[in-house]
Amino acid sequence: MGCFCSKNTRHTPGYEEPTVLAAETPFTVSEVEALYELFKKLSSSIIDDGLIHKEEFQLALFKNRNKRNLFADRIFDLFDIKRNGVIEFGEFVRSLGVFHPNAPEADKIGFAFRLYDLRHTGYIEREELKEMVLALLQESDLILSDDIVEVIVDKTFNEADTKGDGRIDQEEWKEFVSKNPSLIKNMTLPYLKDITLAFPSFVVSAEVEDL
């Protein structure tokens, strides 16, 4: 039997109960509630509709709503699980769960793989790796000759593509990360352990207020 919750709380479309999200992620209920405070802030920074739009995501990352960045686009696309162009609260929490210090390493490795599999082929291809290196250089205002870029890409690709078929599959990626654990360092956000301190939740008092 389903449960129809008619509590008169001011929740946005896409809101999911913290108990449900806590059960599916490494977060506790109070951490999910604190994430809701962060989500509300991010999702109302430009358009106050309770959904994170790409411009709002860019604004939060770069303090600039118009700054396009290949990697931020990839992160946004992976967070946007329903692929409807916005990040809902449930998507936000589930995706951030991968970045929790207690999330399984396999989830982090898998997320990074999907991030770098730009064309969703199930492989990281040499051209994709080169495209990402060029994007990084452009973002950092670093100028390297095309020859040097080719050497960097070739060297890494040869180390990772152990089967030598010109593409990196998930198994090769897992092996490559195990040899180079620093590659998934950015898949862990220590902040998430202190999220209740950074964004204290006022959910209980808000619900009392609504009664």
Partner: peptide
């Protein structure tokens, strides 16, 4: 010659676009 010895994925992982800690800045 330093960049040549660099791991391409390591280079990429330094992108600001992958640094989600900015989301938590007040």
């Amino acid at each position: 010659a330093a960049p040549v010895t660099m791991n391409a994925f390591e280079l990429i992982s330094t992108s600001q676009g992958l640094n989600l800690s900015s989301l938590f800045e007040k």
